[in-house]
Design a protein around this nucleic acid. Structure first.
Lengths: 125, 125
DNA sequence: CCGTATCCCTTCTGATACTG
DNA sequence: CAGTATCAGAAGGGATACGG
């Protein structure tokens, strides 16, 4: 620890140049995490994901997968068979994301009660 | 490393009942993380935050702070002085969030290059 | 089977002006 | 100093129908 002022030299993030924001832009949308978590177990075909994720529309599944592929987190493999078959799986990069995601999930599990309580306290006041 | 194959025990999330989503709804918006990180260092007054976070509007600062207070992550202390003075600081709960957030930030730092590369590969193809 | 194309609605965010 | 109010644009997301 520093002697006089114990101050972390981390600069103020400048909006665009903030690494955390970059992850959150990837993972912050409604379905990304769910998809990544599922693909963390095994590879899935398109309609398999569609059935496994309750409430997602075909449109959003396509869109979200495209983003994840673009960011190099998910690999898409299309087979030119009839009927067509497309497999999605995590890349090595995608798999590395599981750990911090699990940390966040753990935090949520541990503290969701506190959060609900805080909300109720706040909303009743 | 102790784990042989870091396996994620997270069950299939059911949209509303997904703990990760709950955190991401808190932390996924544009300014929350930046505020939490700043308050992780020390307490701030309103305009101090306003000056420290480049690009945020008064409106969004207020709104985001309100959300964080509601969720019990940030404490607001108003002094009835003239001129008025309001201090914001992390609660104990808020401080616990710093760790998983740092994990995510670390991931971003480590892999932002890979992501940029993947994007360029994808966008040129 | 694996997507696209449209349309529409809601939420989020920003700019600006004003107040206790 | 620490906010509110109002308005408007952008982005996220969903429903439905159609295509290779």
């Amino acid at each position: 620890m520093s002697a006089t002022h114990l101050h972390v030299p981390v600069p103020v993030p400048a909006d665009n140049d903030c690494p955390v924001r970059e992850v959150l832009d990837i993972v912050g949308n409604k379905w990304s995490v769910m998809i990544v978590v599922l693909l963390g177990r095994r590879s899935y075909r398109f309609n398999e994901l569609h059935r496994s994720i309750e409430g997602i529309s075909q449109r959003m599944l396509t869109r979200t997968l495209r983003l994840l592929v673009r960011d190099g987190l998910v690999a898409r493999t299309a087979y030119a068979t009839v009927p067509p078959r497309v497999d999605y799986e995590l890349t090595d990069l995608g798999r590395t994301l599981l750990e911090p995601l699990t940390a966040l999930s753990g935090w949520a599990d541990t503290h969701r009660g506190d959060i609900r309580a805080a909300r109720q306290r706040h909303d009743s006041a």
